[in-house]
């Protein structure tokens, strides 16, 4: 594992970039100042590949860029009308599948799903709302879990295991019945602590700290003026 890493050359949207072997397309793009939209990929967690927002065409085939590692001479397309349309559809589906009430959500302005929709310029979803019946777990004194807003990205499952070395969250069932569960009757009975990294891992407002909602005034929130990914795109050139 300690042998010297080789440098490979790949092409993303016509731009040739030198990358070290073993890293994912998503990370390689990020280092080159190219933002590939993504939701379930988070920090250095083992990639999940579940949201498919980061789908790109690799040598003509569609792949999730968060799990696909680079290889020599790869030709990657990301910023194409076709892929933007697919990504938009995925975000639309995430919105209609849950109960996302941005107008009173504490996460609004900080939410990555909302920010993704802003970036794509979505004004209304193209699919009918499902209005599912989902629970809210308020049992924990400092943290709550609102399943209405959960997009099943698995960031909490992986953060709890990989960073907190706990196992607070798990998925149960499959397909459209898949849902997030806590490994106890309620959050209060798990070993979840408000200082755990997992509390900040949720991209939406499903897992949130209590009593800190709406702390940042409208206009000062992260995505009020800058679109998601713009901080990566700004670094273009500097990191090369």
């Amino acid at each position: 594992m300690t042998k010297n890493k080789q440098t490979l050359t790949i092409t993303i949207d016509g731009k040739k970039i030198a990358v070290e072997e073993g890293i994912t397309i998503l990370k390689a793009a990020e280092k080159a100042g190219i933002y590939i939209p993504h939701l379930c990929a988070y920090k250095d967690l083992i990639p999940h590949g579940s949201c498919r927002v980061c789908s790109v065409r690799v040598n003509g085939r569609i792949q999730a860029s968060c799990v696909q590692t680079v290889s020599e001479g790869m030709v990657i397309e990301s910023d194409t009308a076709e892929l933007l349309e697919y990504r938009r559809m995925i975000v639309d589906m995430l919105f209609v599948e849950g109960n996302h009430f941005c107008m009173f959500c504490e996460k609004s302005g900080h939410c990555e799903l909302q920010a993704m929709a802003y970036r794509f310029g979505i004004t209304a979803p193209q699919f009918p709302y499902l209005n599912p019946n989902r629970d809210i777990d308020l049992s924990h004194p400092d943290v709550f879990l609102d399943h209405n807003r959960c997009i099943l990205c698995g960031r909490c499952v992986r953060t709890s295991q990989e960073l907190d070395h706990k196992n607070v969250f798990q998925f149960v069932n499959r397909g459209h019945k898949k849902r997030l569960e806590v490994n106890a009757k309620g959050l209060a009975e798990t070993d979840l602590n408000v200082t755990d990294s997992v509390v900040n891992a949720c991209p939406v407002g499903a897992l949130m700290k209590k009593r800190v909602g709406y702390e940042v005034p409208i206009g000062n929130r992260p995505f009020d003026h800058a679109s998601i990914g713009s901080e990566i795109e700004k670094t273009e050139g500097e990191r090369k």
Binding site: C102, C105, S108, Q114, A117, D224, H225
Partner: peptide
């Protein structure tokens, strides 16, 4: 415009 596209 981006600054006017808001869900809240």
């Amino acid at each position: 415009a981006y600054d006017s596209l808001k869900y809240d």
